[in-house]
Simulated scan of single mutants.
Amino acid sequence: MIIKMLHEKGLKSEYAYSAGFVSIGLSVASWCGSMKVEPMGVARADRWGIFVGEWAPTFFALGLALANYERDHEALHSVTH
């Protein structure tokens, strides 16, 4: 299970949520930056912004999955200890 492995490696739900919010900021920053320096214009800037913006839902989904795992893992350990 990937979520179990990520949890065991030290990844917490808060980290994944934070990465989601950072990726939203990076999406806006990459769109603005690309619009100013990209010779291909707005279309290319839009693609950069959308590409980076697609990371946010993935990070939020990982955060939710990790939060559920953490809750279940904590509940299991509180019952057995």
Rank of each mutant, 00 (worst) to 15 (best):
M1D: 12
D72F: 04
L6M: 15
W31R: 04
P39S: 07
V22R: 11
A16K: 02
P57T: 05
R44P: 01
I24M: 14
L66I: 03
A29S: 10
N68T: 01
P57K: 10
L76M: 08
G10D: 04
S27N: 07
V28K: 02
E54Q: 14
M40R: 09
H7K: 10
A16R: 03
W55G: 07
V42C: 01
I3T: 11
L66S: 10
W48C: 03
H7W: 11
S30L: 12
G63D: 08
G20V: 04
A75E: 11
A56G: 09
T80W: 00
F21E: 03
V52S: 08
I50P: 02
W48Y: 11
L64Y: 06
S13Q: 04
K12G: 06
M1Q: 11
G41W: 06
G10A: 09
S34N: 12
F51Q: 09
Y15S: 13
I3E: 06
L76V: 00
I3Y: 11
G53H: 06
W48T: 07
S27A: 15
C32P: 01
Y17N: 08
G10H: 06
F21M: 09
R71Y: 11
W31C: 05
V79I: 04
N68V: 09
S23M: 13
V22T: 13
N68R: 12
R71W: 04
V52C: 08
Y15E: 09
S30F: 14
A43V: 12
L62I: 14
P39D: 03
S30M: 09
A16P: 05
G10P: 03
S34C: 14
G25D: 00
I3M: 08
T80A: 09
G41C: 07
G53Q: 06
A61N: 13
A65D: 11
C32M: 14
R47E: 09
S78G: 03
G25V: 10
V42H: 14
E70K: 07
S78W: 00
F21W: 11
F60Q: 02
K4C: 05
E74V: 01
E54K: 13
E54S: 13
R71D: 10
F59A: 13
G53V: 00
E38W: 01
A56N: 05
N68I: 02
W55A: 15
T80S: 08
R44L: 04
A19D: 03
A45E: 05
L64I: 08
Y15P: 00
V37W: 10
I2V: 10
F21A: 12
E14A: 14
L76P: 01
K36N: 06
G10Q: 06
I50M: 14
K36V: 04
L64G: 11
L26K: 03
D72N: 14
A45H: 05
S34H: 01
S13D: 04
Y15G: 11
S78N: 09
W55Q: 14
L66K: 07
A43E: 07
S78E: 12
G10W: 05
R44T: 02
A29I: 14
